[in-house]
Design a protein around this nucleic acid. Structure first.
Lengths: 248, 248
DNA sequence: CGGCGACTTGAAACGTGTCAATTAGCGTGG
DNA sequence: CCACGCTAATTGACACGTTTCAAGTCGCCG
């Protein structure tokens, strides 16, 4: 695993080059700003190491101790809770700008298994430096708390999905939520976007079986709702998808 | 709804009189300590209002604006996500010492529906005062972050339960988790404790149907695992319950 | 070419939901 | 005191969604 020490100065990752919904990513932007500020000694206020990893690589183990907070810069990752039986429940998919584990902001353990899905680059920020920055710049804590609250709302909704919705609803909601997140990051072209998830990963995220996800996926295709060939997903009938998902 | 303004001075609630696992309740204790500190003007550093409410009363609506943070002092409450269909998914049951909605610590909306189950008394702390206290006393923020992380872990586990476990497992886990929480608060006598939940509330918490919960409950009774008469629950075979729940 | 992972499909079993009817408990008012 | 109406709990029969097991296809890479 490469680990290149540097402050964030080079606009080498695509986050700089695209417009975002600030809502989603203002904390990330604040981190970047702070990384560029240098104190008297010409050292960056916030240092970080860059990591480039291939697919299926573990970024955090649930109980390992870390003194840094990884933030995704490019690619897809996933955050899940492993079970004793070997199966796992995926809580969220992580896209550029997202904190791999918000628990790592305050404590040493992630509590989740975080793994890359595609090639991923991420920056690991030093936790004590982030904490120091938050007490020095209260608006940073404020921004982080918004991230945390948003994450909580998402998890709450996931509970509702898992507890109370059918397979069709769960899949439709997953697709639409991902579409929105990708759109916020300028990663959607028209109605199509890259979709690197394997069916077993969709199954882990929806609390269903690989076999059943397959059937639902096939039925969505037959109904002309989506097209999914290779790693490209196209939404053909958004209205109907929203209707199935019980979303506006 | 009664709302008696006061600082927390009278040891009138039972939290003072029992020993606790500090782990669970250190944030609450810190709040109490701070409430007793008075600044030069003889006004408490942290003010709060006390509320006494009957069962089935709403403490927070998911989207209503609040400028205070309610903390449960006595009784049982529940925190849930309502659905458009009228059903709801309960995320957690709240016992004395727990924050009704941690989201209210940083933002104006709770994001959850919080309702009393039994008679409940709670204290509503002023949010800006709490925030001020947290920036003045970093160890308070530290304690709160531990509460927040613990809550996150619980929600993650709930996702696993809802996504991947059978009705038997879910009920066994719910009973055992509640037992542990109650034991931390000294609310268990031997193997028995007061259990005010209706079957529909258990159903909402486990993502099952009232009818199905009833069947599982009956089967647990027939197997001699628990006894549940009136509002008193007794655990008769803890070992077997742990086995079903996949817990240690 | 062989092997492996991802995907697909069918048939049967299982868990849970739905509908409907019945019983028990409890406070209220006549 | 009992009848009434209400909510909570219970039970049966059946339908439905999902899992499980098993087999088979396809594409890719060594």
């Amino acid at each position: 695993m490469l680990a290149k020490y540097s402050s964030v100065t080079a606009p080498d990752n695509f986050l700089f080059s695209v417009g975002f919904a600030a809502h989603d990513l203002s904390f990330w932007h604040a981190l970047l700003e702070l990384s560029k500020i240098r104190s008297r000694e010409d050292a960056p206020t916030l240092s970080s190491t860059e990591h480039v990893i291939p697919p299926q690589t573990t970024i955090c183990h649930p109980t390992d101790w870390h003194d840094s907070v990884p933030v995704i810069c490019s690619g897809w990752a996933m955050s899940s809770v492993p079970m004793a039986s070997g199966r796992q429940q995926t809580i969220s998919f992580l896209l550029p700008g997202e904190i791999a584990s918000t628990a790592l902001m305050f404590g040493p353990t992630a509590g989740r298994l975080v793994q890359s899905i595609t090639d991923v680059t991420y920056r690991a920020f030093n936790r004590s430096e982030i904490k120091a920055a938050m007490s020095k710049h209260p608006e940073l804590l404020e921004k982080f708390s918004r991230v945390w609250i948003a994450e909580k709302l998402d998890t709450d909704q996931l509970c509702v999905d898992l507890g109370r919705r059918t397979g069709d609803e769960r899949l439709a909601r997953l697709i639409l939520k991902l579409t929105k997140k990708l759109a916020n990051r300028g990663m959607v072209r028209g109605q199509a976007f890259e979709f690197p998830l394997r069916q077993h990963q969709i199954a882990d995220a929806t609390g269903l079986t690989l076999v059943h996800i397959n059937r639902v996926l096939v039925s969505f295709r037959r109904k002309g709702l989506i097209e999914l060939d290779g790693r490209m997903l196209t939404i053909l009938n958004a209205d109907e998808l929203y209707r199935i998902a019980n979303l506006t």
